[in-house]
Amino acid sequence: MAETATVAAANVKKAPSKEKTYQVVAKRLLKNKLAVIGLIIIVLQIGMAIFAPLITSYDPVKQNLDASELPVFSEGHWLGTDNYGRDVWSRIVFGARISLVVGIVAVTLGLLGGVTLGLLGGYYKKLDGVIMRIVDLLFSFPGILLAMLIIAILGTSLINVAIAISIWSIPSCARIVRGSVLSIKEKEYIMAMKSLGASDFRIMVKHILPNAFAPIIVFATMRMATAILSTASLSYLGLGAQPPTPEWGAMISQGQAFMWSSPHLTVVPGIAIMLTVFAFNVVGDGLRDAIDPNMDIQ
């Protein structure tokens, strides 16, 4: 408990010894077994995504109608093949790329929007009311429905899914950033900066934002989990990846029709999604515990 307090304090201070803080956080994170497992899964997944062509022997979209719906542990296809005779392992591996890329794009866009709104709202009292109402509005809108409307306008594609999901994470992010800004804005050194004539933009980006860094990182990690899950859900509803893209949610939705004859087509991508989302969640959780267990992130 005492330890945590120091770290939290260290974060709020003008970060006198950044290196040390990171070392402490890393050390603590590595003590958390669950988080380590999560990290391993994430590293494996990134590896899979980068080296996809090297660890698979089939093209993920290449059909072979003579070898369709092979069960798991078939010769040459250890995870079997789908209705079109495409290798499930190859599709899972290439699907890792898609999940990661869509997740990263969605989270980045969401952070850009959320951080901007949060900074402006926290810093300028006049803007705060309007921005918080926008945030409330986005909050009270069922996320999946918002995404469906956005995709209805923009059309079905992974890029649009990323945009739709990013909008979904703007309100939470804005609230977190705004909270941090409010807590530091009145601090002496910021006041001092102001009186020295530093521009608002400089103060916000150079001095306030770094202090909100810790909650943002935790938030981003957990949002990766949500983003990957949401991408899969939207693809499941037929609103995401265009066929024959090997997207995991789309694979489940296609596989469901064969649930009785070839359950692996549903089960395998489901496990892939679950493990990935699980990994990001435990790492996010671990990070939070390591930095400051009382951090409020919804």
Partner: peptide, 22 residues
């Protein structure tokens, strides 16, 4: 504690359309 925490995190991570079908 560890089991229940693991389950809790797995619970958040499971796609619910998939869970429903299973």
């Amino acid at each position: 504690d560890v089991t229940s925490t693991t389950f809790a995190l797995a619970g958040i991570s499971i796609p619910n359309f998939w869970l429903g079908a299973l």
